[in-house]
Nucleic acid binder design. Structure first.
Lengths: 205, 205
DNA sequence: AGTAGATTGCACACCGGTGTGCAACGAAGG
DNA sequence: CCTTCGTTGCACACCGGTGTGCAATCTACT
């Protein structure tokens, strides 16, 4: 067992293993995105692998979905904290957030459907911390009169990023068109005036 | 077979039958509202009836759901045409629509979840005509510069009444609070300025 | 060559929901 | 009284997805 580099280069064996594992995850995201009720068999074939192999990496369907969700939470949290400059105006922060969130949201659009249904509870609990971060951001916006206050921050934030996911799930899923539309729409929902919303979007590259 | 009234009074036999049938439908709406994946058995017990009896009225689960959806489409279409005065301003029409839609939306909140999943296709096709009516209304609003144009009317209308259903599905489901919040939120989403939205809502009783 | 580990191709049991068949019960209606 | 019809309580077959067991295979590493 020699390690010829500084980086902990894993043996090609383990790398190949991780490759299949990652491929299964990626493909699962795709397949479930098209049909949230797809079975382990569908995912396996789409990954060019036998059903039994999937169970080798993920003992149960719940494990697979939990892993997927954990991935999503990690990425989205990173995106949010990256965009969040606590002293910045809430509207600008939101724009930066959605801009970075967009491609991720498209990949993980399945979560929107998965929150209802069998594993809803598990997913919900995993998404909890992220939800709180978002609610906090919206709350800040409401406190500084940037966002409207017709709804409590908790619900409003859910609706706002629900809209983003919904648009990511529609025809406009790819291209800059969708990102722009999603940003403006969510800003409107948050109570930002249309002219101001457009100005904010055209500011940030 | 004597009919002692002008109204086609059905025999008490048939009436009792229709009563169970209607009760099943009502209860199904409730049960499925709580858990869209509830089985025929759950619905039956909740209706105080045996599973076999449900199949007596609805040959298949799809039949039940289709009937439910047809009911919803009928009621919602009635509500929409009732609120729609073609020469009125689109914003005011929307407010009147949501006000009347609110209790109905709460009852049929399950449709939101049911559109995805096994019977999505069937439901979608039944909802088609209603969707077109709504898209038409939103289009009118966009043409007269009352609604924003950052999204095509088809998608924007879906999002707008999706938000109404989402709020109807949340904690604020009952009471006037929810209705008001849903109306304002959907107006904001449609691009109506906040002050104007509030004015519109406080106008209509 | 030999071994360890990932993958494969079956097999199987299990589960829950769906839909059906049928005999029996019970109350309205002739 | 006897028929009709909704309801009931079983039984059963069917289906699709889940999860497991195990021997065989292939490939990389020793």
């Amino acid at each position: 067992m020699c390690n010829n580099g500084v980086v902990p280069t894993q043996s090609p064996r383990a790398r190949s293993t991780n490759e299949t594992r990652d491929r299964i995850l990626d493909v699962a995201l795709d397949v479930l995105g098209d049909n949230p009720d797809a079975g382990m068999g569908d995912i396996a074939s789409a990954a060019g692998v036998v059903r039994r192999t999937v169970y080798g990496h993920f003992p149960s369907r719940l494990d697979l979905i939990r892993t997927l969700t954990e991935r999503a939470v990690t990425e989205m949290t990173a995106v949010l904290t990256e965009a969040d400059t606590p002293d910045a105006e809430a509207g600008a922060t939101w724009v930066a957030f959605v801009a970075r969130l967009w491609p991720v949201a498209h990949r993980y659009r399945v979560l929107l459907a998965l929150r209802r249904g069998e594993y809803g509870e598990a997913i919900h609990s995993l998404l909890g911390p992220l939800d709180e971060l978002l609610a906090g951001l919206v709350q800040r916006g409401q406190d500084s009169d940037v966002f409207a206050q017709h709804l409590p921050a908790g619900i409003l934030s859910q609706l706002a990023y629900g809209v983003v996911f919904a648009i990511a799930d529609s025809d406009l899923s790819n291209g800059t068109r969708g990102a722009r539309a999603a940003t403006i729409t969510s800003l409107l929902l948050l109570g930002v005036p249309e002219t101001r919303a457009i100005a904010l979007v055209d500011d940030q590259p």
